[in-house]
Amino acid sequence: MAHPTKSPTRDADGLAAEYRALVDGAGLADRSDAGRLRITGADALDLLNRLTTNKLDELPDGHARLTVLTNGDARVIDVLELAAVDGALLCLTSPGRAGAVIDWIDTYTFGEDISIADRTAETTQLTLAGPGAAGVLAAAGVTDAPARERVAQVTITGVGVTLWRTMSGGVEGFEVIVERAGGTAVRAALAAAGATLVSAGAWEAFRIANGAPAYGSEFGEATNPLESRLRGAISEDKGCYTGQEVVARLLTYGKVQRRLMSVALSGPAGAGPVAVGSDLLADGARAGTLTSVADIPGVGHVGLALIAQKRAAAGSAFDVRGAPGVTATISEPAYALATEPVEDEA
């Protein structure tokens, strides 16, 4: 079977156990490499509403929303998780993108009252995911966990945390954001309450298996949010925002060129490695590109790919350039199925 070159580095048994915890129980991943911003100012929400894809004309305290920061060509600067907490906006960015997001917003700030503080280095971000996540929180004393698109300030082992339900791993989970000094205690408390600590590799495998797009792999300045299956973060009736005209045209005329799909890789023992960036071939012609791959013990080799729209029917199979004998079979990503609006069949 093919061996992805971007596979997690944990040993197979450890990775398998961690992955199973995320799928069947409750896994806790340290995702402090994501960016965390605190945005304040009377004009902050209005400016973000003008610069991003989702409707942000109001975001009451305790509410959260996913939105996409796009340029005038509707290419993705980053995908942002926004939440209103105590009169400020908390903003989660992709790993390594906090500075780029701040710079982008600053470029488009003229007379607006808005301030952005990069709190990435001062805070810890843990993500608790899996069907047992709510039970772990309850065992840790949090009985009023927030619903989807909601955020709450709670206490875990005496430490104040921001608890935020998101889809960051492709399925519902909780972001646990805490001042850095309290991170170790909160992590230990959640582990004592039943969460399995999982490595970055297991989290990445979980993300890929669930089809959650990531910056630099499935979205970025070479993609628009529709190709990356981020339609759940796009409002079609909010009016103008940067990139809106392009997005509206793509939707109206059905001109989205590529479609993010989940991939299952199969092949004979000893088949060559499958690398991120490999072309997927249909009848010898390039039909798409592998954007992420993971080798999950007990599950198999899975990935994500951007496929030409006309070739992107679920169940389609492709050859992989440079990996003789390997077949890539595509399916709809779980994340897209859970977040995209249901199309009107009429």
Binding site: L47, N49, R50, L51, N71, G72, I105, T107, Y108, T109, F110, G111, E112, C240, Y241, T242, G243, Q244, E245, V246
Partner: peptide, 12 residues
């Protein structure tokens, strides 16, 4: 006369 961020192309 001024510009502000937003609008389809980035500045309005």
């Amino acid at each position: 006369v001024a510009v502000k961020g937003g609008g389809c192309s980035g500045l309005t």
